[in-house]
Design a binder for these strands. Structure first.
Lengths: 259, 259
DNA sequence: TCAAAAGTGTTCGTAGTACACCCATGT
DNA sequence: ACATGGGTGTACTACGAACACTTTTGA
């Protein structure tokens, strides 16, 4: 179970942004010709996958890299010229962690505390990445998967980033089809319920999950049935996600438009 | 009515992040000692206020600045050393638009297209700012408020930013108490319903709004009553928001935890 | 034939909307 | 008194959770 946290909100009146002693460093107009203030920008991605672990049930895991200076850290690195942040995130996942495919990648937030990293001032633009559970692990170099509830000490503020990513993921599972990026292309509902359970941290009933997701048009039956498991039981119908693109499926919990 | 758009999602397998020809510009380890890739970072804020306009009802408006080079643009500018992005956003709102108080400020997204601004490569970290409707306009210098549905042509990608901000605001009105930052400290429910209506783009029934928001503990009655309006009518009870901090008030539309 | 897993159906609670009706004030 | 706006109550719908019961397989 993930505790919800409000993200990046600076609330309630800082009255008088009088920027005492703060040098703006530029004239107040023509934004596009100023070139004095540059800063190091890095991307960091929290990549999640629901994976088998020592326990009976699969668990939500995060991909970490061992970094000799600062311990375990999220994969990522600085951006280069003429590259979007998303492209940089993908590039670093390839080079740093051997990950060649993520089914979904989205911006999380920017972490900009001046002291978040010692030495050079570094702003981190962070991402969430999701890998379907049937994609092989392919851990490369010094990368490794960890249960989200059994993380080692992480470098800098990377633990905050992972926590925020988990909250976001849990939230979106409830009102979007984001699980398409965690699930295999075809699956029995009981397996999908386990994926939801792993990501949310509490058990999800497969019966009701089917009802909710099919009413919303998120999953559709493929018509095929799977093999029955090791200990007998009725062979399960196989389902698939209708989209492979993030969609809001329950837009308004309240205050929906009239008619 | 705001059309929902999925934000910042790069979905569905870029298989093989082989970064063809892309120079990473650094060795793959020790993130904290690299200093080659720096980039200009600017903050931009879409500030909203529900304000009286020519029409009978108040409308949602955005604060824009006239910029001689690129036309109307969002207030903001580059960050300086040892300043978080949020602080930079606040500072620029003060110097560029004379705004000394926002009730809520939150990160929106990062816009990083290499060509989003000509000349120097500039990454924009964008924010949403909200100003209560009873705060005087205080337009300063060449800043001006515009109806969100009657915007002039905006500089660069600033129109995209405003649109994304509107979608985010509309969404959060439904499942958080974010309206605290748009409403006066005390208000009759009919006035709050108008604020919701302006921000959402469709009429909101004040009767039901009261029920929803009081069940959730978002608004509370102050006990006082206001003055009756110009054309008679029963004097309204006055309400206030319980918090001045963003809170999720309807966390799970579906898939709530058991028990 | 029995256990295990999957699927179907039913009941229940509750949130949200629509709308009718009652209340308090100014003219 | 009556128009105007505010407040209360009620009926209806829909969604989701819980859970019992039925179905289909393997041992």
């Amino acid at each position: 179970m993930v505790t919800p946290v409000i993200e990046n909100a600076v609330s309630a009146g800082f009255s008088g942004a009088r920027h005492a002693g703060v040098r703006t460093g530029t004239s107040p107009h023509n934004l596009e010709t100023m070139s004095d203030t540059t800063v190091r920008v890095e991307v960091l991605t929290a990549v999640f996958q629901v994976r088998e672990s020592e326990t009976a049930e699969p668990l939500l895991q995060v991909l970490l890299r061992r970094c000799e200076k600062a311990g375990w850290s999220l994969p990522g690195g600085p951006i280069v010229e003429r590259e979007t942040l998303g492209a940089a995130a993908v590039r670093w996942l390839g080079t740093r962690a051997g990950l060649t495919r993520v089914a979904h990648l989205e911006q999380l937030a920017v972490f900009s505390d001046p002291d978040r990293v010692p030495d050079e001032r570094t702003v981190a633009s962070t991402f969430i990445g999701l890998v379907p559970s049937d994609i092989p692990a392919e851990t490369v170099a010094d990368a490794e998967w960890f249960d989200v509830d059994g993380l080692p000490p992480l470098a800098y503020d990377h633990r905050d980033i992972v926590d925020r990513a988990r909250v976001r993921l849990a939230g979106k599972l409830s009102y979007t089809n984001i699980a398409f990026a965690l699930a295999p292309s075809q699956f029995p509902m009981s397996e999908l319920a386990e994926i939801y359970g792993a990501a949310l941290g509490y058990p999800v009933d497969s019966t009701n999950l089917l009802r909710v997701l099919s009413r919303r048009g998120v999953v559709v039956a493929t018509g095929t049935v799977g093999r029955t498991g090791g200990k007998g039981g009725r062979p399960p119908a196989l389902y698939a996600f209708a989209d492979t693109q993030l969609r809001v499926t329950d837009e308004f919990a309240a205050l929906r438009p009239p008619m």
